[in-house]
Design a protein around this nucleic acid. Structure first.
Lengths: 243, 243
DNA sequence: ACAAAAGTGTTCGATATACACCCATGT
DNA sequence: ACATGGGTGTATATCGAACACTTTTGT
């Protein structure tokens, strides 16, 4: 595992060498873009169909090389813009995948990000280009590279964060009803939540304000619309939102 | 931010190109090695003094280049072995730091890891080589690169994980008393815990077994020694160990 | 009038928190 | 005998979980 001729340490004991002279892996960023479809109770991920070797014809996460002049966060944001036309959404670094043979071409590390985009912001040219499409996280096709593992990891993190942060709001449009919010939680957590308990807890957390408007659709009593108070902390202190 | 000539996507739409032909950053791994000194109520980090430019004379995290033939986890484990002589400890990937100018030499990403080593496993040649030393996390010297930010991030993660996992045990030797365990928690969380409540909760969690031995030192009643049940889950289900 | 969705309180069990004294040993 | 650290139980407050009916609208 240890290769003495390559055992150089730029961080602590650099010799008189040029860091750029040594073997370097290729580095990409891949983004797991989540969105919610409340209509059919589905959590979806954006995938792109590969056109070339390796894994030609398989679906893969949107991603690309990290350029030398951009930070990792910038690179991930650029993928969102260029691949999905999405701007300024929730974006968080997830994990760096670096198994030696995860890419057959050469050594490629990938820094995985996950993004949450509200349904309303989704204007992907989905049909214009059948190489880009949304897939249910509960029914994924075969995926290129280790992208299945990356998505699984991202979904675990999403469920986890939902319990003690307010990331759920990033999947909803600016204004939403409490029923919509509850359904978002139910889809992601895959469990039914009690309506009264849910509403009490979310309102007691003091992170929502009524917009004053109402949402009417079809029959039934109109629902109050709420807005997320952005200045509310995103970490819900010491106690979980949904323990 | 977007450079069209470099806008190639190996993950999704690779052209007929060689991934290795494009600009690649250098990639290192840096490890935040934590240890506890129960004697003086201190949480410590292992640092190494840099000998060369840049930041010569400043302290830095142990780390080094990722080699093409090793995974990231292997690379981190190798740093632990070669820099600190430590084997098989708790080791977890933390975050990848990739700001454009974090290293003045060239573009260098670093994948930060954090390690928890029990006091008993610490046999660093600390005085033999004054370039390696332990520092209190509460009183750090000036650090090279962005290593201060990396340590801060690692400490936040450690405190956080302590509350809902059992990582605390990885900082203790194989056998320990409940008082030692409580002090470990108190040092990391920086708060005093109630003795009775602490003991009740940790014992009710069913993750410890009595070794049968007693610990005697100086005056006072001897204390029962406990061992961590390794087969106990490390994630404490849905409820926090210390809410 | 009725169907459909929004909205609303209370009870009960579990858990967290606060708190003070006796026990076993070394000196 | 006393100093030192180990070990133990109870009462109260808070929080989570379970549970069903009324209100407002469209048709």
């Amino acid at each position: 595992m240890s290769n003495p001729t390559n055992e150089i340490d730029p961080g602590t004991h650099p010799g008189t060498y040029n860091a750029a002279d040594y073997d370097r892996p290729s580095v990409t960023v891949d983004v797991v873009i989540f969105s919610l479809s409340l209509d059919d109770d589905d959590l979806r991920v954006l995938l792109m169909k590969r056109q070339q070797w390796p894994h030609a014809g398989q679906w893969a996460l949107p991603g690309g090389f990290v350029q030398l002049g951009e930070s990792l966060d910038q690179s991930a944001a650029r993928q969102l813009q260029t691949k999905a036309g999405i701007d300024s959404v929730y974006l968080e670094q997830l994990y760096t995948f670096g198994d030696v043979n995860r890419d057959p071409r050469t050594r490629v590390l990938t820094i995985a990000y996950f993004a949450l985009v509200p349904m309303s912001a989704v204007q992907i040219r989905d049909d214009e280009d059948s190489h880009t499409a949304w897939f249910s996280i509960f029914d994924l096709p075969a995926l290129a590279f280790d992208h299945r593992a990356i998505i699984d990891y991202a979904y675990t993190r999403l469920r986890y964060k939902l319990e003690y942060t307010t990331v759920g709001f990033d999947l909803l449009p600016d204004q939403f009803t409490l029923t919509e919010l509850q359904r978002a939680y139910q889809i992601i957590l895959r469990e039914k939540l009690d309506k009264r308990n849910f509403r009490r807890k979310i309102l007691q957390a003091n992170i929502l304000e009524e917009t004053g408007d109402m949402f009417r659709e079809g029959e039934g009593r109109p629902a109050k619309l709420y807005r997320y108070l952005d200045d509310a902390m995103t970490e819900v202190k010491t106690r979980r939102l949904f323990p």
